[in-house]
């Protein structure tokens, strides 16, 4: 029997919210390390993956590796029935994962709800993501990231992100005009999460679709900070670490390549 108990359902709710705009259904691979999901959106432009580490669960039992085919919307519906501070327990039969049992218990232990969700057999393409060294990274407040993406969307469809010695700049161009937002390296002493940290081996400049970045930015609910990692003409990685070492949600987005004709 696979069993995992989280102290608060809120984390799971937020994770679902961060993937549901991109993915309808996906396999949740459960093993000794924790629960992992990886899926591309249907146009194969972006990929989202999350991991919730085994250590972050109150109870985590996984005798055999198992893939649970989850319809994201359905699970989100079930989770709506839980209060944010309810604990949530997921259970499934490792040998025949046809259904997932979902149990909510209130803080005062006076309310227990129990749901069964049907699982699916999903034939899914998995991509091997190389643990590559990115030439430049920016760590910044996730709320700030969300705001920049929102602001630029009023002007254009895509954003050019440039990281160099001076800082990180985000610029866009549209029918009505153009815009540019520039962040400088800074360290905020009292509130470290508001600082902007830049590590740079080589300057880098790439263009990405704002439609996707805005979807990713919603994951700001999971984490105070976000790390953007980039290399020239390579997908950008956008990582939200979930607080208290619970795990992460990562997005990968293929760049727009000008003059590409194929």
């Amino acid at each position: 029997m696979f069993e995992a108990r989280l102290e608060e359902s809120a984390v799971l709710k937020k994770i679902l919210d961060s993937v549901r705009d991109l993915v309808q259904e996906a396999n949740w691979d459960c093993n000794d390390d924790g629960i992992v999901m990886q899926s591309m959106d249907s146009s194969h432009i972006s990929l989202v993956c999350f991991m919730v580490r085994a250590s972050s669960f109150e109870v985590y039992q996984c005798e055999r590796n198992v893939s649970l085919g989850v319809k994201i919307d359905s699970l989100a519906k079930v989770l709506k029935c839980a209060a944010s501070d309810d604990s949530v327990t997921l259970k499934a039969d490792e040998n025949e994962p046809n259904t997932m049992d979902i149990l909510f218990e209130s803080k005062k232990n006076d309310r227990i709800s129990d749901f069964q969700l049907k699982l699916m057999v999903i034939d899914q393409e998995m991509l091997g993501i190389p643990e590559s060294d990115y030439t430049s990274t920016v760590e910044m407040s996730s709320a700030e990231f969300r705001r920049i993406m929102g602001d630029l969307s009023t002007m254009g469809d895509s954003v050019t992100i440039e990281i160099n010695k001076g800082g990180a700049s985000f610029s866009t161009k549209g029918d009505i005009g153009s815009g540019n937002i520039c962040l400088q390296k800074s360290a905020s002493v009292d509130k470290p999460k508001d600082g902007v940290k830049i590590t740079m081996v080589e300057p880098v400049k790439s263009t990405f679709s704002l439609k996707f970045l805005n979807i990713f930015a919603k994951a700001a609910a999971l984490s105070d900070t976000v790390v953007l990692s980039m290399s020239e003409e390579y997908p950008i990685r956008i990582e939200f670490a979930i607080d208290k070492d619970v795990g992460y949600v990562r997005y990968y987005l293929a760049p727009k390549i000008e003059g590409q004709e194929s």
């Binding site: 146009s43 972006s46 991509l127 091997g128 390579y234 990968y252 293929a254 390549i257």
Partner: peptide, 19 residues
């Protein structure tokens, strides 16, 4: 035509055969 410059992710990452 403007959107056509967008690349696909699977041109960068290769498929895993496991599944």
């Amino acid at each position: 035509r403007n959107a056509a410059s967008q690349a696909r992710l699977d041109t960068f990452f290769k498929k895993k055969p496991t599944a």
